[in-house]
Design a protein around this nucleic acid. Sequence first.
DNA 1: AATGAATGAGTCTTCATTCAT
DNA 2: TATGAATGAAGACTCATTCAT
Lengths: 196, 196, 196, 196
Amino acid sequence: MADREKRHLEIRGKRKKQIMSVALRLFSSEGYGHVSIAELAIHAGISKGLMYNYFDSKESLLKAIVEEGIDKIIQSFDRNRDGILTAEEFAHFIRSTFRLMEENKVYWTQFFGLIIQPNIKEFLKNSEMTGLIASYFDILGVYFKNMGFEDPMLEVFHLSVTIEGFALMMLFYNDLADIPEALFKRFEERIIHTYT
Amino acid sequence: MADREKRHLEIRGKRKKQIMSVALRLFSSEGYGHVSIAELAIHAGISKGLMYNYFDSKESLLKAIVEEGIDKIIQSFDRNRDGILTAEEFAHFIRSTFRLMEENKVYWTQFFGLIIQPNIKEFLKNSEMTGLIASYFDILGVYFKNMGFEDPMLEVFHLSVTIEGFALMMLFYNDLADIPEALFKRFEERIIHTYT
Amino acid sequence: MADREKRHLEIRGKRKKQIMSVALRLFSSEGYGHVSIAELAIHAGISKGLMYNYFDSKESLLKAIVEEGIDKIIQSFDRNRDGILTAEEFAHFIRSTFRLMEENKVYWTQFFGLIIQPNIKEFLKNSEMTGLIASYFDILGVYFKNMGFEDPMLEVFHLSVTIEGFALMMLFYNDLADIPEALFKRFEERIIHTYT
Amino acid sequence: MADREKRHLEIRGKRKKQIMSVALRLFSSEGYGHVSIAELAIHAGISKGLMYNYFDSKESLLKAIVEEGIDKIIQSFDRNRDGILTAEEFAHFIRSTFRLMEENKVYWTQFFGLIIQPNIKEFLKNSEMTGLIASYFDILGVYFKNMGFEDPMLEVFHLSVTIEGFALMMLFYNDLADIPEALFKRFEERIIHTYT
DNA sequence: AATGAATGAGTCTTCATTCAT
DNA sequence: TATGAATGAAGACTCATTCAT
């Protein structure tokens, strides 16, 4: 009994992940509104009805995907929040952020491609991320002030804009030709160099 | 007769612009796929059928909007392409770019919100813009080299990423609370200062 | 302009009535839940989509039908409610009620067949009819008391039960073979005779 | 072995009854077409698949329920069919009928709520009940004739209509507030008094 | 030029039923 | 016996597009 139940849960878990993974890819590349359940089912190799065994609706599937991504981000960034950053810590923070993105380039690119879609942005605004971002902005503001920057908030703005722009660039050019791996490294060092 | 015809064309022109303007706003905020012709007609104060007097289809309307935006960009940037930039010319180039964006903040924000949507990106890739951007990249590369930057292509990348990131930030935060006007100016000077 | 608008409204009105009429017939004979929009469309000689030009949903169509019936009933019975009934008035009340049912036997049989369906009953309970029925019960109670009946409320109950049962009988046997016209008359006189 | 088999059959029998009981309740209150197998399974505390171990299909389950009800009715009324009714026998017949309904008010109300649904009526028409009812009509006709009623068939009609109307009334008002128990008794005596 | 009734293909969703375990 | 994952046909509903007026 416990055996059967365990297997069921395993199967459910796998299927759920599989559906979410396929959906993220399609939603990101085609746009949420342009992906039909039929298309999703074909790409996931399942029947049309099965999705509804795992998610209440198409929108609920979207929500699950977005929330999972937000959770991943929060888990990654929710450590060492004592609030004071040294130059070394700043460098480490930037490097580990890029490392995270690089390791799951496909996932994060797709995720980014998803959350910039109209109506989906709203999910973010109502999530914990808003607070998380604000607190990081504060920490960075203090750091830049301590480092002697004239206009710390402008630097915070510049840095975050740069990182978002980088993500957007990856999204745009990844379809055509991959961005050279080396660029990751050089770009990252360029940022660290500017701010330490 | 010629008079009547002229007035006729004038009216057509105005209607067309009005439809395109409303459509851009809706496509950008709701997402192309989520805007129905019925909704568009209501917001434009016309009947559903009338749209088809001006555009062959919904997609043709989209195309017209995107092409108009691309044309505007090309017209703005297609001057002084002798190819060699002085520091002063660079500063002027950055300033006039920001000025253009600032003056039509609403239009460009909407336009940006439109072209980052999946499937619509493709329009850009097949447009003249690709070549235009490439040529600007070349000019900037030469400029950065002349200015003694170690890795000119990285700087080009950084600059373009920054500007795209800025546009994205405007798109995201414009709904909630306007970005302070002053930031435009400070951000722009920050870029000029870095690269001159 | 006013002309066109008028014609539009005329067409809309006719179509709406036509759809409601076909829907009532099908809902009553097949059961609301078993009638598909496709089936309804075929029987009404229209396309599947057109129904949604006139009603928001299948349920909204149902609601319109039920409410129309309730309104008809209320209009028929909402006259002379001074509250005191003579034997003559009672006889007239019964006769005119039967006359109304007889004249639109098809409509009322279908309507009755609709409102006894599960879930649809609820519509009635929340309608004005509840109050109307209650007030008629009161009036009849007084009448039976004045006529010297031992247990007036029991008579009210008996009478209403009899009429409802008559409606149900019509619904059941109308499919197979029509109830003989004469029965209407004899049944009606039987009731009048019992209670005057 | 025979023991195990017996227990086996006992369990099967119980399960079957349980499923039928839950199904009758749901079919009656929600309408046959609106009850899904999933819903049924949840309310019966079994899995979706298990139902198919006991019944071939949803319709076959419905059929079993209706047939069981018809059987119960036939068993109750199939006695003393010598054909001639005295006044005393008539009174006893009415009383025992009401007693039967009263004792299993919930069951019969639900059953009645089921068989008046469109499409389900057909089951009755093709069942033995049609003949049974006809024969009772005959017996009652003779009885009323012997009792000196002017229009015996009208009385048969009136009586059956009254009883059906009573059942319908119970179905309608049972959800809201129970019909006072005393009414059963008084209503029954009222009928007996009229016809003896 | 302008309207909106009408169409029907396509979308999301439900659900009776099957089957491997 | 019992489970629930999986299927696919069918249902409610949407919407780009056409066309008579």
